[in-house]
Amino acid sequence: RTAFSSEQLARLKREFNENRYLTERRRQQLSSELGLNEAQIKIWFQNKRA
Rank of each mutant, 00 (worst) to 15 (best):
E33S: 04
F4M: 09
R27V: 15
K48Q: 15
Q28C: 08
Q46M: 10
R20F: 05
K48F: 09
L30Y: 01
E33Y: 03
Q8Y: 01
R49D: 06
E24I: 12
K42F: 12
E18D: 08
F45Y: 04
R25P: 07
R14K: 13
T2H: 14
F16K: 01
R26G: 04
L36I: 11
L9A: 04
L9I: 12
L9T: 06
R1H: 13
R1W: 10
Y21G: 04
L12P: 01
W44A: 02
E18V: 08
Q46C: 11
A39D: 15
F16W: 10
R14M: 12
Q46D: 14
F4L: 12
R27P: 02
L34T: 07
R27C: 15
R14G: 05
R26W: 03
K42A: 15
N19S: 08
I43L: 13
N19H: 09
R11S: 06
E33V: 05
W44V: 02
L30V: 02
A10E: 13
F45Q: 01
Q46T: 08
E33I: 07
W44E: 00
L36F: 02
E18Q: 10
R49N: 12
E24L: 10
T23R: 03
L22D: 09
A10C: 10
L9S: 04
Q40H: 08
E38D: 06
F45T: 00
S32M: 14
A10P: 00
Y21M: 07
S5F: 03
L36P: 00
R11M: 06
S31Y: 04
F4A: 03
E7N: 06
Q28P: 01
R1C: 15
W44F: 08
G35I: 03
A39R: 10
L12T: 00
F16H: 03
I43D: 13
A50C: 11
R25H: 11
E18T: 08
E24R: 15
S5T: 14
L36E: 01
Y21D: 07
N47E: 13
N47Q: 13
F45P: 00
Q46Y: 11
L9Q: 06
T23L: 03
S31L: 03
Q8L: 04
Q28L: 10
R27I: 15
E7A: 08
K48W: 09
N37R: 08
I41H: 00
N37W: 04
F45L: 02
Q46H: 11
Y21I: 10
Q40L: 14
L22C: 05
R1T: 14
L9M: 07
S32C: 09
E7F: 08
L12R: 00
T2S: 09
R20V: 06
N47A: 10
A39L: 14
G35R: 05
E38P: 12
E33K: 03
L22P: 14
N19E: 04
R27H: 04
K42T: 14
A3Q: 13
G35Q: 07
A3S: 12
R25D: 12
R20M: 10
K48R: 14
N37A: 13
K48I: 07
S31K: 04
Y21K: 06
F4K: 02
A50H: 10
F4V: 05
E24P: 15
F45V: 01
R27M: 15
Q8V: 09
F4G: 01
R1M: 14
E38K: 04
A3V: 12
F4C: 05
A10K: 08
Y21P: 04
Q28F: 07
I41L: 07
E15L: 04
R27E: 07
I41C: 03
L22V: 05
L12S: 00
F45N: 00
E24V: 14
T2N: 12
Q28D: 04
Y21H: 10
E33W: 04
Q8R: 02
T2C: 15
E7D: 09
Q8W: 02
N47T: 09
R1P: 14
R1K: 14
T23I: 02
R25I: 11
A39M: 14
Q40N: 05
I43P: 00
R11H: 05
F4W: 06
S6R: 11
L34S: 02
R20L: 03
A50P: 05
S32Q: 14
A10F: 05
R27T: 15
E18I: 10
A39T: 12
R49E: 07
I43T: 11
L34M: 06
